[in-house]
Simulated scan of single mutants.
Amino acid sequence: MNSKIKKSVCVMSGGMDSTLSAYMMKNSGYEIIAIHFNYDQRTQTKELECFHKICDKLNVLEKYVLDLDFFKQLGASALTDKNIEVPTGGVEEGIPVTYVPFRNGIFLSMAAAIAEKEGAEVISIGVVEEDSSGYPDCRESYIKSMQQSINLGTKDETNLKIEMPLVHLQKFQIVQKSLELHVPLELTWSCYKNDTQACGVCDSCRLRLNGFNVAGVKDPIDYE
């Protein structure tokens, strides 16, 4: 019996969350179509290198690397504007300066176009609502509304589901689940500032290190 191959377009940054999300899709029987965005972020080179290595581990057959120079022109975020310092002092009030305006909305729109072309039924994104940096585009309610908009704006026979398997997990649970699924955490990158050794003090490094600490295991990547 020739059953149809299930495909999932996985938005993959090279970070821990999106990598786990892709592994969960693979584990659920989906063929992975990997998509990565270069948007002139500070750690672009390192993230791209991690993405390719993770795709090799996942035996990804189809991958897209998309260059978005629009974000550099836009600026307005410490990740894309070198004139804005990446904060290293811990928790900020409100939406942090590392928020990139509507980034996930733009990524999901492009992923939807690829999913429609490739005949995929799912888009996967590693957003985390409860233990994230407070980004508005990581909220479950937002992703659900995006799913509705994507399905309204595509062909009638296109019926896409956006999977966000980590949305209610905390970082230590993400570490635990990654270990359970043999995710190559040593290939993932979270630091906002550096692309050789992780800084250990930016918001993303702090969240990651705390996750490993609470899970009671050592982070396999190098820190300054």
Score class of each variant (00 low, 15 high):
residue 52 H to C: 01
residue 210 N to E: 15
residue 93 E to T: 11
residue 60 V to F: 01
residue 180 E to P: 06
residue 151 N to E: 06
residue 98 T to Q: 04
residue 30 Y to S: 01
residue 165 P to L: 09
residue 191 C to L: 11
residue 47 E to C: 00
residue 207 L to S: 08
residue 107 F to V: 10
residue 177 K to H: 00
residue 141 S to G: 02
residue 205 C to R: 15
residue 142 Y to T: 01
residue 62 E to T: 15
residue 174 I to C: 00
residue 104 N to G: 08
residue 154 T to G: 01
residue 183 V to D: 00
residue 18 S to I: 01
residue 124 S to Y: 00
residue 76 A to S: 14
residue 157 E to P: 01
residue 112 A to W: 10
residue 46 K to H: 08
residue 32 I to Q: 10
residue 19 T to P: 12
residue 162 I to K: 13
residue 198 A to E: 15
residue 189 W to H: 12
residue 144 K to S: 11
residue 61 L to C: 06
residue 163 E to W: 09
residue 16 M to Q: 14
residue 187 L to T: 06
residue 112 A to L: 10
residue 147 Q to Y: 01
residue 39 Y to F: 06
residue 97 V to F: 00
residue 98 T to M: 09
residue 37 F to S: 06
residue 82 K to S: 13
residue 140 E to F: 08
residue 18 S to H: 02
residue 104 N to E: 08
residue 190 S to N: 15
residue 8 S to I: 02
residue 196 T to M: 13
residue 8 S to Y: 00
residue 152 L to T: 07
residue 10 C to A: 06
residue 198 A to W: 12
residue 51 F to H: 04
residue 90 G to M: 08
residue 24 M to A: 01
residue 148 Q to Y: 14
residue 29 G to N: 05
residue 18 S to C: 01
residue 180 E to Y: 04
residue 185 L to V: 15
residue 189 W to L: 11
residue 215 A to W: 09
residue 65 V to T: 15
residue 188 T to F: 03
residue 195 D to N: 10
residue 104 N to C: 07
residue 71 F to G: 13
residue 136 P to E: 07
residue 131 D to C: 03
residue 38 N to T: 12
residue 142 Y to M: 04
residue 117 K to I: 15
residue 215 A to Y: 07
residue 209 L to E: 11
residue 24 M to Y: 05
residue 190 S to I: 12
residue 42 R to K: 15
residue 83 N to A: 08
residue 100 V to S: 12
residue 71 F to H: 15
